Structures are given as C-alpha cells and as structure tokens.
Simulated assay, not measured.
Amino acid sequence: MKRQIGVLTASLLILSGCGTSQTASGDPGAIFAGAAIGGNVGGAIGGLIGDNNGGWRGGYRGSAIGTIIGTIAGAAIGNAVSAPKQETYGYRIERTEPYKPQHETYPAPSVFDNLRIRNIRFIDDSRDHVISSGEKSKVIFEIMNEGEQTIYNVVPMVTETTGMKRIYISPPVMVEQIAPHNGVKYTATISAGERIKTGNVTIRVAVADGNGQQYDWQEFSLPTER
C-alpha cells in the first residue's frame, strides 16, 4: 500500500511538471528513484514516530504520512540532480559579419581554415553586460574542427582592439590538438582597472596557429563605465 502511494505521488509530480520546465525538468527515472528512496525512508521514520505516540494505528497513519512527504522530497531531489544545467546571465554574442580570412598572402590552404568559432558568451560580475571599473568578466567560446584532420597547436586569442587603457585580458593558452569534428571550450578573463574611461571597447575573439597567424575570428563591442 505504501509503495502504491509513493508511485502514485511521484507520477502526479511528473505529470504536473509537463506544463513547466521548472517543476520537473529532470530525468523521470531519477525522479522515480528519488521518490522511492524518499518514500521508504519517510515511511519508516513516520511509522516509528506514530507508533510511539499512538500505538499501531498511529504507526500506520504516521507511516502513510511519512511516505507521502518522503516521496515528494525524494522526487524533488531526483529532479534537481538530473535536471540539465544552464548558463545563467550569459550574454550571447551573435556572429554579425562573415568570416574574413587573415592570411591572404599564404600560397596554400591551411588545416587551420577548418577551425570555426561558435557560441561566444560574455559574463560579467554584475551581469549588466557593461565593463565597469574594478570589475572582472569572462569571455567563453568554442573552437570546432570541421575538417577531416587533427589540428595541432591551436591558440585561442582574445584581444582588445580599440586601445582602451586599463583593460587586462588573460594570456592565451595553447590547445595541444583538436580532433576532426570535435571542439574545445575556452575561457578568457577580462579585468578592468579602477579608473577606466566611460565609452565602448571592442573585443576580438580569434583562433590562431602557433606562429600567431589568425584564422576565423569575431568582434563585438561592449560599453565601459568608470
């Protein structure tokens, strides 16, 4: 009987979450497992408490109530653990201009031509998408290898192109290799000095080879504030 109560309660929780991703966005299997464990534990504890206070009738009643409460709590934990994680407050940078190769003087194509920058995100401490004095922020992006060969010694680059003073960007870290049809996620930190100017700053995100030659790239502008 208690098992039927737990299963019914978990089923109602999942069905009630069909209309909203915030209620039951996790794996149904994980929700049922959490509900079963929570129901068993809640039923046992509730039965002991009820038995001490009201005999076997109180124990049965306490066990039933404990099963319901434990099932709800267990289902909520299972949903929270299995729900997909999302980046909050990320400012997505859309590609606003076509790819412009930076190596027209090279006589032959390079495997680096197959690298593409995707999913650029900018996240600042205040989440207002403004670089303020003394603030730290991050630029996160992916580098994908769309070719058929492994590419070695890939250098992700994040630079400031407008000459704004007191903008400090973390130095690039070389990626040893990117396999065909695979990618890497890269994060660069941006620190603003205490007395930056109010205006706008342009950030360039690029991918380069070991010699510093840039290939696919994207620029975007952000306001700055003292």
Rank of each mutant, 00 (worst) to 15 (best):
T187F: 03
Q218K: 09
T161R: 08
Y89L: 09
A36T: 05
S132I: 02
I120Q: 02
R118F: 07
N182Y: 12
P172G: 04
G134V: 09
M157E: 12
S16W: 14
H129D: 12
V155L: 13
A108C: 05
G62H: 00
E194K: 15
H181S: 05
G210L: 06
V139Q: 00
P180I: 06
S133T: 11
M157R: 14
E87Q: 10
I120F: 05
N52C: 06
N153R: 13
Q4M: 08
Q102M: 09
Y99V: 07
N114C: 06
Y99L: 07
S16T: 10
T202I: 08
A30S: 11
G6K: 00
F220S: 02
I120D: 01
T189L: 07
T150A: 06
T161I: 13
R61Q: 12
R127W: 07
A33N: 04
I31D: 00
S170E: 14
N153T: 11
R204G: 02
M174C: 03
L115P: 02
G19Q: 10
A192T: 02
S221T: 15
G66F: 00
N114K: 15
K2I: 05
A30Y: 13
G17K: 03
G55H: 13
I140M: 11
E176L: 06
S110T: 14
T159E: 14
I37T: 12
S221F: 04
K197W: 09
S170F: 09
I117W: 02
A10H: 00
P109Q: 10
I45H: 02
I151G: 01
